[in-house]
Amino acid sequence: MAKKVKDPGFGYGSFKNAKKIINEDGSSNVIHINKRRGLEDLYSYLIEIPWWRFFLFVFLVYTLINIVFSVVYNLIGIEQITPSTGNIWRDLLNGFFFSAQTITTVGYGGIAPQGLMANIIASFQAMIGLMGFSFITGLLYGRFSKPRASIKFSKNLIVRDFKEHRAIMFRLMNSRKNMMIEPEVTVTLSITEPDEKAETHKRNFYQLKLERDKIMYLPTMWTIVHELNDDSVLSKYSNEELMQLDAEMYILLQYHDEAFSQKLFKIYSYKFSQLKTDVKFVPSFLFDEEGNTILDHDKLDQLSDQKS
């Protein structure tokens, strides 16, 4: 019999054709409201966002701070750092350049504060610059040093004939050259069905039995197989019914990474709308003339007819 499990953390309540809870990159797709935010949230946000967004954030904040201080220097009198040009835009630009030299502690010497107020503001801005760049340096170190699982999953689930029955399969690949030690995978199935009593929809969760849920190491690619035998909750569905089923697979992969010398985790999910029938995965690796194993990353998602 299929092993029905308790809610793994997603909630029993659901909605017809609800969106995926797990994004393609393994992050949560849950929308938070009425949440109080703090500096720790900003740090986590800046650690997780893509590199281009991180550098864009740094550039925009840096530019905004210099614009603010440029306005301040002009309000107290641009003459306290450099003679006025008589043009407001040129004076703002001079204030901006002086602000950039101060906040970065470059100090070319072409422009220097003369009055007491300008020196006080410049001293305060230099302190902001030191603290700000220390914060950015910490973020850069955190982004580079944070261990991330480099795992790629096939785009689709497939269902095909397997032994005396059928099986649902997907593939995952080690996209780095370092070895994954003792990778272990857990697959939880969520099926959303109408709840006639509450006139809503409810999730039922099942832990799927896999052909193999743990191997010694993974240098190439691993095909995860769940056989649709009499013990499977999915065996009663035809291929066409499986494709129409409001269901989702949640995958948790954990392994020891030799490069980081610690255990890493990767989360992924598949909606059954991603299911392909009567196909099979093409071989993903081959051998060259010298006997070396060649892993072709482009073949992770490639499918062929089951009979070919």
Rank of each mutant, 00 (worst) to 15 (best):
K16Q: 14
V71W: 10
W89S: 09
Y62F: 14
V58G: 03
F54I: 06
P50C: 05
K19S: 15
L75Y: 08
I76Y: 00
I22R: 04
S28K: 05
S28L: 00
S44L: 11
I88S: 08
N29C: 06
I81H: 01
N34L: 04
I65L: 04
I88P: 03
F69C: 10
E79F: 09
L56C: 07
R90M: 01
S70V: 01
L39P: 11
E79I: 13
Y43T: 12
G86S: 09
V30W: 06
N74W: 01
P83A: 03
R53I: 12
L56H: 13
I47V: 13
Y43R: 14
S70W: 04
P83K: 02
L93M: 07
S27A: 05
N23S: 15
I33G: 07
F55A: 05
I81L: 03
N74D: 07
L60C: 03
Q80V: 05
I76N: 03
D91H: 00
Y73V: 02
W89L: 15
V71M: 14
K35R: 08
N87T: 08
L46P: 05
V72K: 03
P50F: 06
H32D: 13
A18E: 15
I21C: 12
K20P: 11
I21S: 09
K19W: 11
F59W: 12
G77P: 02
V72F: 07
N29I: 08
V72C: 10
I88G: 04
E79N: 06
K35F: 02
I67L: 14
S14W: 00
N23D: 14
I78T: 00
L75F: 08
H32C: 12
L39H: 12
K35E: 05
K20F: 15
N17W: 06
T82Q: 12
S70K: 00
S28R: 03
L92S: 05
L64R: 05
G38W: 00
E40S: 15
Q80P: 02
I49H: 04
F57W: 10
I81K: 02
E79Y: 10
Y43V: 15
I88Y: 08
G86Q: 09
W52S: 12
I81E: 01
I31K: 14
G77E: 00
F54Y: 10
